[in-house]
């Protein structure tokens, strides 16, 4: 594919300063504007980015750097996924820029509204897990299984340890079920929106209680942090990861156009008090 395409990084409010840094592989950035929004892009001459994992990682980071810069400079940003490109139309003969402008105009009001809603917010990720060895350490079942280990030959111990591990995980998982509602409620009280996600990283020997992307007023991140400190103090076997702040990647919530099979939408309806 040799025709000229536009690689899209982000959508920002029209009139925001264009990012000064470089894009993927040092490419030069510019904006395509269509009131009330504009798109941050570079002119691309090849197909999608493909290659070894190491290259993909680097490209994704360069992509995210551009979004970061937009996020720091513009009042608000809608991050666009990696490897999204706009192509010239073969049927109408419209250039890539015209195609993109057309899409921005069609979805302009929706995009603008979401930009306003996300202004001044950050995404933080909270992962709370329980140490499966520590959490149930005083449960009778665990004490019993531990006692059984003593004085047994190595082979038997190997099996008994496996069983102990199973017991620990089951008890910890039941504990996680009990703790989740409280943690969820306390985090939600500090957030504008919350979205559970499946953890990609599980530290060895832990059971996940809650993994959530949190949309937070950028001024109030420390309040969320304080709540987590509180949780840590109450529950010494909790292992907490607190990541961010990032642009609101998980809360873009826009599926422009029709009939795509992209990320599932939250089952939400009206907000009210």
């Amino acid at each position: 594919m040799s025709s000229e395409t536009l690689y899209v990084y982000a959508i920002i409010p029209a009139g925001s300063p264009a990012p000064t840094g470089a894009g993927i592989n040092g490419s030069q950035l510019h904006t395509v504007e269509a009131e009330p929004v504009s798109a941050v892009v570079h002119t691309h001459h090849a197909g999608p980015y493909e290659g070894p994992d190491e290259d993909v990682k680097r490209w994704v980071l360069e992509h995210s750097d551009v979004i970061e810069e937009c996020w720091n400079q513009a009042s608000s940003v809608l991050p666009v996924s990696f490897n999204v490109m706009v192509q010239a139309s073969e049927t109408s003969g419209a250039t890539a820029a015209e195609q993109l402008r057309g899409w921005l105009q069609d979805s302009g009001q929706e995009l603008k509204q979401r930009l306003q809603e996300l202004a001044g917010t950050s995404e933080l990720r909270v992962e709370i897990a329980l140490d499966a060895a520590q959490f149930p350490q005083n449960e009778p079942e665990v004490l019993e299984a531990t006692r059984e280990l003593a004085g047994k030959p190595a082979g038997v111990r190997r099996l008994l340890e496996k069983r102990l591990e199973k017991v620990q995980r089951r008890l910890t998982d039941a504990g996680a079920d009990r703790l989740y509602p409280d943690y969820r409620m306390r985090l939600a009280a500090q957030c504008q929106q919350i979205q559970d996600y499946a953890t990609t990283q599980r530290p060895e020997g832990t059971v996940s209680v809650l993994s959530a992307a949190c949309l937070v007023d950028s001024e109030r991140i420390s309040e969320l942090g304080a709540e987590l400190t509180q949780i840590q103090q109450e529950q010494p076997s909790a292992r907490i990861r607190f990541l961010g702040p990032w642009p609101p990647y998980s809360f873009v919530d826009i599926d422009a156009g029709a009939g795509s099979a992209s990320t599932p939408q939250e089952g939400k309806s009206s907000a009210e008090t």
Partner: peptide, 18 residues
Amino acid sequence: EGGDLTEEEQNRLGEALL
């Protein structure tokens, strides 16, 4: 857990796994 294995069998199995 089902009590199907003698301690001798448990040990052999465990050692093989080790």
